[in-house]
Every structure is written in structure tokens, then in C-alpha cells.
Design a protein around this nucleic acid. Structure first.
Lengths: 109, 109
DNA sequence: CGGAATCCATTATGATACTG
DNA sequence: CAGTATCATAATGGATTCCG
């Protein structure tokens, strides 16, 4: 039986792997913003995703980075600048975001 | 500003709504199975999704039902038979599942 | 600016046993 | 067969404070 591997986690099904990768209260919104902007600074992400706490934002960014969907670029300036961007693998998930957004549009009021 | 509503929950962004609807460890796998089979019995879902506990499976099925993505059909027979199927709204999320599955295939080993 | 550290409350998930 | 009920643990979320 075929297997699917992300980091050190192994799944029996591609949907299970994908589900695990995007599972998290803010992950899809992070990916959505990054899919539109080439790259984005931490503070900008924080402002665009209202209600997210710094802790959760950082935590999700770290997980997405570990899973290879995004990359973190640190510019050692003063004040420090950190930019997040989709990786090649991350960009390949954009069709999912697009489809998801279209589905969500069905519920517009 | 436009709003998006699912049940009694209101979101500012379609991705936020969609993210909320599919958020759950097993929800995408449930939707994936139901997208392939017309309808499926509880016990069959249970067998196909290995490792899911009865509690979580039922809980996720209930939530998907409340959100209008799936419907539960009870046939008052002995022994009882319960079938789950995608609703019209649920079927419209299939492109998401397809895209997600394709993305997951990238990690095949 | 972009975090880290800590404490605490709430949810989510799971294992097991039991039932109409 | 298709669930419930109970108990327990793990994960998540939020507030606050501090740092280079």
C-alpha cells in the first residue's frame, strides 16, 4: 500500500496528509494571504488576520515552515525585518485555496 | 464590508468560513469518502477511516450535518441502518477535495 | 519589530465500556 | 448496527509580561 510522508509523519492517504498540514485555526488564512502577496511581513500578517494572537500566529507559521509550505526570511536590520513567503510546494497548494474561497463565497450574505 | 454566514457563525472572509467548516481531524477524510460513494453507512465510514474513535466520528458527522454539508438518512429497520451523503452544498466542495488530494500526492513515497 | 516565556482556561481528541 | 456515556489526556487559545 502506498504511503505519504510529510516531515516525520507518515500517512496512508494523501487527503490525510493534506488535512494534517492545513489543520489549524488560522493556517488556511495565512496561506491565502501569502498566495496573494509574493511575501508578507509578520506585522502585516498579524494585522490582516484579526483576532489571531501572536502566540498562535507564530506557532502556525513555524508549523507551516517545518512542513515546507512557507519560508521565513530574516533581514538582520535594525529594526529587524522578517518576511514570509510560500515555497514551491506551498505555491502548489494555491488551487486548494482558490477552490475553498469559491466555496465560501456561496455563503455570502 | 461583506460577510459570510454558516449556521449562526458569521465570518468576514470566505476562507475563514470554509476553514471553520472543514476544521477537524477527520472531516476532510469523511468528505473525501462521501464524495466517492454516493452514500455510505456509519459502520463503513468507521472501517474506512482507521484510527478514528466512534466519539470523534459521530461528533464530526453531527457538525458536518449541522453545517449543511452532509445529510443523515435513518432507515428504521432492524438492525438499524443509517446512511450519510453529501448535500448539494456538500457536493460543491468536491473541487477542494480533489485539489487537496492532488497536492497530497506530491508526498508519495 | 518580531518575537519568547509563562500561566491559565477552554477545546479537541481518545480509550473503554455499555445500550436500544 | 449505530450509536451513548464516562473518564482521561492532549492540543489549542488567550492574556500578560519581557527581550534583543
Amino acid at each position: 500500500m502506498e504511503k505519504y510522508k510529510l516531515g516525520d509523519k507518515v500517512f496512508d492517504c494523501p487527503v490525510g496528509l493534506a488535512s494534517n498540514a492545513i489543520n489549524g485555526k488560522w493556517k488556511l488564512q495565512i496561506l491565502n494571504l501569502l498566495s496573494q502577496e509574493e511575501c508578507m511581513r509578520y506585522g502585516n500578517l498579524k494585522r490582516r488576520i484579526e483576532d489571531v494572537s501572536e502566540k498562535m500566529l507564530i506557532q502556525h507559521l513555524r508549523e507551516l515552515e517545518q512542513d515546507g509550505l512557507i519560508e521565513r526570511k530574516l533581514y538582520p536590520e535594525v529594526p529587524p525585518r522578517v518576511e514570509y513567503a510560500l515555497t514551491e510546494v506551498g505555491r502548489q497548494i494555491i488551487p486548494v485555496i482558490v477552490a475553498l474561497k469559491q466555496w465560501g463565497q456561496l455563503f455570502r450574505i
